[in-house]
Amino acid sequence: MISEFQDLSDKIDRLAQLTQSLRAENYLLRQANSLLSAENQEFKERLVQAQYRVEALLAELPLPEAPAPEDDADEANEATQ
């Protein structure tokens, strides 16, 4: 009977140690998650800023000129010859 209580006590001790270990791990994971979330937010903001800069540069570029209809006819004639 005493050995059964000792076994139960040992199991309770192991459970308490495991609980403490998991709490410590959970705390570290929450810290890491918080840091990664902040870093992710910074990357998103940088991506949006880069997108605005690219769009501004594209808006400054001149539109491509459409080829003259005569040029198309000349090219078609040269391709068939």
Rank of each mutant, 00 (worst) to 15 (best):
L63I: 07
A76I: 04
L15C: 06
Q17L: 11
E55F: 02
K11P: 01
E4D: 15
F5Q: 14
Q41S: 12
E70S: 10
R14T: 10
Q51R: 05
Q17I: 08
L29S: 06
L29M: 11
D71E: 12
A79Q: 03
K44W: 03
S3L: 15
E55K: 00
E55T: 00
F43P: 00
D74M: 12
D7E: 15
L29I: 08
S21I: 03
E75W: 05
A16Y: 07
L57A: 02
E42M: 09
Y52F: 10
A79S: 00
Q20A: 12
E42F: 01
E39Q: 10
D7C: 11
T19F: 05
F5S: 13
L28Q: 14
E75G: 03
A59M: 02
E75M: 12
A16D: 09
L28H: 14
D74K: 14
N40S: 13
E25F: 00
L28N: 14
Y52G: 09
S34Y: 13
A59C: 02
A76H: 02
E65N: 11
V48N: 00
L22D: 09
A38Q: 14
E75F: 03
L22T: 11
A38I: 12
A56V: 01
K44I: 08
A32R: 13
L22P: 03
E65T: 09
S21K: 09
L36N: 07
I12F: 02
R53I: 00
L18E: 14
E78S: 01
K11D: 01
L18Y: 06
A38S: 13
E55D: 05
T80C: 09
A59E: 05
E25H: 05
E70A: 11
E70F: 04
A59R: 03
N40R: 15
E4P: 10
D10H: 07
Q20L: 04
A79F: 00
T80N: 11
V54L: 15
K11W: 02
E45F: 02
A38Y: 10
I12K: 06
L58E: 15
A68L: 14
E78I: 01
M1A: 15
A66W: 03
P69I: 00
Q51T: 01
S37I: 05
D72M: 08
Q20F: 02
R23V: 03
N26P: 00
L47F: 09
E65F: 08
R14D: 09
T80Q: 13
A59S: 04
A59Y: 01
P62N: 08
Y52N: 12
T19Q: 06
D13E: 11
A73R: 12
S21D: 08
F5I: 13
Q49W: 07
L61F: 02
S34F: 09
L35K: 07
V48K: 06
R53P: 01
S34R: 12
D7Q: 14
N40W: 04
Q20M: 07
Q49E: 14
D74S: 10
S21Q: 08
E45A: 11
P69F: 00
V48P: 02
L47T: 07
Q31C: 08
D7T: 11
I2Q: 14
N33S: 13
A73T: 05
Q17R: 15
N26F: 13
P69C: 01
I12P: 01
K11T: 02
N33F: 08
R53M: 00
S37C: 10
E60T: 04
E45D: 13
V54N: 06
L57N: 04
N77G: 05
A76W: 04
Q6L: 13
R30H: 11
D13H: 05
S3Y: 10
N33K: 12
N26A: 15
L57V: 05
